[in-house]
Design a protein around this nucleic acid. Sequence first.
RNA 1: CGGGGUAUAGCGCAGUUUGGUAGCGCGCUUGCAUGGGGUGUAAGAGGUCGUCGGUUCAACUCCGGCUACCCCGACCA
Length: 420
Amino acid sequence: MRVSHYLLTTQKESPAGAETISHQLMLRAGMIRALGAGLYQWLPLGLRVLRKVEHIVREEMNAIGCHEILMPSVQPAEIWEESGRWNTFGPELLKFKDRHERDTCLAPTHEEAITSMMRHELNSYKQLPIAFYQIQTKFRDEMRPRAGILRTREFIMKDAYSFHLDIQSLQETYDKFYAAYTKIFTKLGLTFRAARADTGSIGGSVSHEFHVITPSGEDKLAISTESDFCTNVELLPDAKEGDASPDGKGTLKFTRGIEVGHIFQLGDIYSKKFNATVLTEAGQPVIMQMGCYGIGVSRIVAAAIEQCNDEKGIVWPQSITPFDIVIIPMNMHKSERVQHACEKLYQELTQAGFDVLFDDRKERPGVMFADAELIGIPHRLVIGDKGLDANIVEYKHRQKAESEEIASDEIIDFLKKQYS
RNA sequence: CGGGGUAUAGCGCAGUUUGGUAGCGCGCUUGCAUGGGGUGUAAGAGGUCGUCGGUUCAACUCCGGCUACCCCGACCA
């Protein structure tokens, strides 16, 4: 992408009221703009990151045999009355009447929709177990949206639902999702923990939350110094730092996290209400067991920034950066040689499969460096007459203090190595 | 929903006390110079001062209602 043909609207100052780091940086980098309280518009730069997160989530869902579907946000009251949540969900459920005066809502989650569909689609034990997911907009009419993208009223979520003949099958699929989530957050390049958690308004028995670890997180976690043990302190309200870990390994210490994923064993609480049955091998109808599995896709973008930033701006993990490489020319508008070298490199790197940002603006070097650092591009190449004379390209990683010189004809292999 | 705050150019702010119909910085446009860390210079464009009403010869400024947004809390993914 050439910056001269792109919408790169960076700002030096944070808009008033943006207190959270990720909120400030997303605004300053030109990733998002506010439309109303808890409602955000995604600019091209921000959407690139969102799409990369979606892509990783989609890959791992597909890898465990979960099937992608798409359900509507606008839903009739009937299914919510059937589950009982029309009245119990609370004011977060945004209700309205359509032109025919029918009670309608914007869906905050999709247990009702999927269960009402699958009771018709699934008829036999032979079809089980099976799981479906979607990546779609959810609406929750939050009392107080806050912290930019971290708590919004409208957000992108990956929600998945599994169907089973029995609890043992549910447990097996739950474990598969647990493993898939671990892979996803590892691939995203984030430091995270899976925590035992409360099931909240979704209901069900067993549940785990996946948290991105950062001091700015809303949730307080107790983790073991010696093992993977981690729990939301709401489940262990009397715990103190230094107490023995409940799993017997090490002692507890406190940390904070941003919840970016939550998996539940729902059991039959929804399938029972919707009378979602299949026939067993013996020809008898049996209520299906269900699991549900959520990931806050848009929240991950903000959580990643909370975890990965410095005084100059965002420091993207390589897997979700909007651009892999930025090319910054020195004095290109006076040197045809620099211009040709940049063009050639831009073409070659793009052909090699990299997302390349070529800063072809007629800007001072300082401006281009500052923008590249603010928007967090991991790999920076500086092309100038000096380097061309010596047949080298100046390379710098966003996280490193010093730059290094790479022979011009080795630069593509060098960058490929960074991604292997 | 309770408490606190803000609303003036795209963004950050001053002006309001002491009413006389708007200003600074950044950004944007154009010229010249500069060209390895947000450069300098000159000339420009851009605002019914959140909204409705009141007081007044006159309201960004005073008074009242409303709305929006932000922060803390409770709540929540």
